[in-house]
């Protein structure tokens, strides 16, 4: 684990995307994406729905397959090679909009599943680590319950703990708070902020602009499958350059 935030700027890139293009049938979803994420960097991606932001981060752990261009994660280029895909997925954690906890397993079992079957750890050790992370997301007392018995916010925190158990080098967040009731958003964001402060490399697709302002190193605005604007949060919010960024920001911050 890289507990200390590596000095941004001179470390090797954690994620590299060069000229990435993707189509759904004839629909051109990702257009010439170039993106470099340094180790320890926190990036927030925003944009209107259908702009390709989810697709972009889902390409990073190969849940979606890109058709042109190159993606390198932690020095491993993503190709059709199943071994490499699994290797990349082991180092990339992902949190989904709809949590996607396994309803037939308890919270604890959800967290141990990949540890015992992929990392081949003894069960006791896996449980100890799982409890440690559940403790960190403040939900250890629910470990023996099933996901269906938890609130949305609790489920999402479990989902974060489940990813962290594999010691990922990058965490991907795909609209982690969009399916939550307003009073539960904060408990999830708190966990994410804490994670960011510990120096985790993060890519978040989110509309929580408060989170972007306090945590992000860079904010990326996407529209129609391309990266329109990319800047540090301060200039991004105070002085957006592109017309469409301005329009988007006025729409979501307007009221």
């Amino acid at each position: 684990m890289n507990e200390q935030a590596t000095q941004a700027g001179n470390a090797a890139p954690m994620v590299e995307m060069r000229g990435v293009n993707k189509w759904y049938g004839d629909f051109h979803v990702l257009r010439d994406i170039d993106l470099e994420v340094r180790r320890g960097e926190r990036i927030v991606i925003c944009g209107p729905s259908g702009s390709g932001k989810s697709t972009l981060i889902r390409c990073i752990n190969h849940l979606e397959e890109h058709q042109a261009g190159e993606i390198v994660v932690g020095g491993v280029p993503l190709t059709q090679d199943v071994k490499r895909i699994e290797q990349v997925r082991r180092s990339v954690g992902m949190v989904f909009q709809h949590f996607n906890l396994f309803p037939h397993l308890t919270v604890l079992e959800n967290c141990c599943l990949a540890q015992t079957w992929v990392q081949k750890k003894p069960r006791r050790e896996a449980e100890r680590l799982a409890m440690q992370y559940l403790e960190r997301v403040k939900i250890a007392e629910q470990a023996r319950k099933y996901p269906g018995q938890l609130s949305g916010g609790q489920q999402q925190r479990v989902a974060i703990a489940r990813s962290l158990c594999l010691h990922p080098e990058v965490m991907l967040f795909d609209e982690p708070t969009s399916a939550l009731d307003p009073e539960m958003i904060k408990e999830v964001l708190d966990v994410m902020v804490e994670l960011a402060e510990e120096g985790m490399t993060m890519l978040c697709v989110t509309h929580e602009m408060g989170f972007a302002k306090t945590v992000a190193d860079r904010v990326i605005f996407m529209d129609q499958g391309q990266i329109i604007e990319e800047n540090a949060p301060e200039p991004f919010f105070n002085n957006p350059q592109s017309e469409r960024t301005q329009l988007f920001l006025s729409q979501i911050l307007g009221h």
Partner: peptide, 12 residues
């Protein structure tokens, strides 16, 4: 989403 979550945990 269940399949995706499992894949994201790098289960083969």
């Amino acid at each position: 989403g269940q399949t995706e979550a499992a894949q994201a945990l790098s289960l083969p």
